[in-house]
Simulated scan of single mutants.
Amino acid sequence: MPSERWLAELGLSEAVDRLEHRVADGTGREHLIPFAEALQWVYSLHEYHRLTRRDFFARAAADRAGETLRAMVYARGLLTHGMADVTRLTGSRPFRIGVSRLSGGDALDGPGIEVFWADFAALPPGKPEKHGRDALYQKHLSSVPLLDPFGPVLDWLKAQP
């Protein structure tokens, strides 16, 4: 199993690269495809470390990126098990001839779309999460620009023994 860790880290890095491209393109909800893949790699790496390091949770709790990783696992669960959209779009797409539709929400002066993690209050209601990851989501991801946490989390994961 340890020999495959690098592959999961590479998978996360490449999924985030595709996510950056989709967010920069700003054409709509298509960012959810590489976003879901990135969250799956986050979860896979979380599980790898959880199962191979007795001190994983203590290490994660001692670092902002470790806590953010656990918050991402919470978001991944909402997306995977409930098809909940844990992102929020703002802005409007610039109108492009041959691509835009009059009814598509495009604007002649559209500044583009920005993507954020959904506000915690907008997430589906439920029981408090037994591992406190919902509180970590509220603390580290709620309304944060979507791409911001991925770099620090990947760096933290790579730094783990």
Rank of each mutant, 00 (worst) to 15 (best):
G77E: 11
E47T: 12
S3G: 01
L108G: 11
P111D: 14
P2G: 12
E114T: 14
V153N: 01
G98P: 03
L147F: 12
T68L: 07
G112A: 08
L136R: 15
P2Y: 02
D134C: 07
R133E: 15
G132K: 06
A60I: 03
R76I: 08
W156A: 01
D25A: 15
A58G: 11
L78W: 03
A75V: 07
A62E: 12
S3R: 10
F35I: 00
A84G: 11
R76N: 05
V73N: 02
P111C: 04
G132C: 10
A58S: 14
F116K: 01
P124V: 07
A121K: 05
A84R: 05
E114I: 00
H140Y: 10
Y74E: 00
L136C: 04
L157Y: 07
S142Q: 03
G66I: 05
K127E: 15
K158P: 05
R133T: 11
P145Q: 00
L39E: 02
R22M: 13
H140T: 06
G77Q: 13
A118Q: 07
T52H: 13
Y137P: 00
D106A: 15
R93V: 00
L157K: 06
G91S: 07
D119K: 13
D55A: 13
K139V: 04
D148M: 11
R76K: 13
S100A: 13
R76C: 03
V153W: 03
W41N: 04
L51H: 07
L79H: 11
R22G: 00
L45F: 04
W41L: 03
H21R: 15
H131P: 02
R101S: 14
G112R: 08
A8P: 02
P94I: 02
M83G: 06
G77F: 06
E114S: 13
L7C: 12
R54S: 12
W6D: 15
G66H: 04
